[in-house]
Amino acid sequence: MDLALFDLDNTLLNGDSDFAWAQFLITKGVLDRETQEAKNIAFYEHYKAGTLDIVEFLDFQLAPLARHPRAQLDDWHREFMETSVRPMIGEAARERVRHHLARNDLVAVVTATNAFVTGPIAREFGIAHLIATVPAVEEGGAFTGKARGTPAFREGKIERVEAWLESMGLHFGSFAQSWFYSDSLNDLPLLARVDHPVAVDPDATLRAHAERSGWPVISLRGAF
Rank of each mutant, 00 (worst) to 15 (best):
93 A>H: 08
146 K>N: 12
210 A>G: 03
34 E>P: 00
24 F>T: 06
31 L>N: 06
45 E>M: 01
153 F>Q: 00
19 F>W: 14
152 A>T: 15
109 V>N: 05
12 L>I: 00
224 F>A: 15
46 H>M: 15
210 A>R: 02
13 L>V: 05
73 L>C: 11
61 Q>C: 09
42 A>M: 14
224 F>E: 12
166 E>M: 04
193 R>P: 03
87 P>I: 11
95 E>G: 04
79 E>Y: 02
125 F>M: 05
160 R>Q: 15
145 G>N: 06
90 G>A: 08
46 H>E: 15
163 A>D: 10
42 A>L: 14
74 D>G: 04
144 T>R: 03
186 N>H: 13
89 I>F: 12
25 L>A: 04
4 A>H: 02
78 R>F: 01
157 K>D: 01
59 D>K: 15
218 I>N: 07
134 V>T: 14
38 A>T: 14
85 V>N: 03
140 G>M: 03
8 L>Q: 02
23 Q>G: 03
6 F>E: 07
213 S>P: 02
32 D>W: 01
170 L>S: 07
165 L>T: 11
23 Q>L: 11
207 R>M: 01
188 L>D: 04
193 R>H: 11
144 T>L: 07
53 D>E: 08
98 R>C: 00
181 Y>V: 08
50 G>Y: 12
63 A>V: 01
75 D>R: 12
77 H>D: 00
76 W>R: 07
51 T>D: 03
67 R>C: 10
147 A>G: 08
26 I>H: 01
119 G>I: 00
189 P>L: 10
186 N>A: 14
30 V>H: 08
1 M>K: 10
73 L>T: 07
178 S>G: 10
73 L>H: 09
69 P>L: 05
40 N>S: 14
111 T>C: 04
121 I>E: 04
140 G>R: 08
160 R>Y: 13
2 D>V: 06
187 D>E: 07
197 P>G: 13
185 L>R: 13
1 M>T: 11
105 D>H: 15
219 S>H: 00
48 K>N: 14
92 A>D: 12
91 E>P: 05
122 A>P: 11
187 D>N: 03
112 A>R: 04
151 P>A: 05
128 A>F: 02
17 S>E: 06
124 E>I: 05
217 V>W: 05
101 L>E: 10
24 F>R: 09
92 A>W: 02
170 L>N: 11
54 I>P: 04
104 N>D: 15
215 W>P: 13
114 N>W: 12
31 L>T: 05
116 F>P: 06
208 A>T: 10
179 W>S: 08
176 A>G: 15
169 G>T: 09
92 A>R: 07
56 E>V: 06
198 V>G: 03
218 I>Q: 09
165 L>I: 13
204 A>G: 10
8 L>E: 02
37 E>I: 01
172 F>W: 15
157 K>Q: 01
45 E>D: 06
198 V>Q: 02
68 H>D: 01
32 D>Q: 05
204 A>W: 06
181 Y>R: 12
12 L>D: 03
159 E>P: 01
106 L>D: 09
58 L>K: 02
110 V>C: 13
162 E>W: 04
56 E>R: 14
174 S>T: 06
45 E>L: 02
213 S>Y: 00
197 P>H: 12
114 N>G: 12
220 L>E: 12
53 D>I: 03
171 H>N: 15
73 L>S: 08
178 S>I: 09
170 L>Q: 08
67 R>L: 14
199 A>P: 08
119 G>N: 10
106 L>W: 12
36 Q>N: 14
36 Q>M: 14
209 H>A: 15
201 D>P: 02
62 L>P: 09
119 G>V: 00
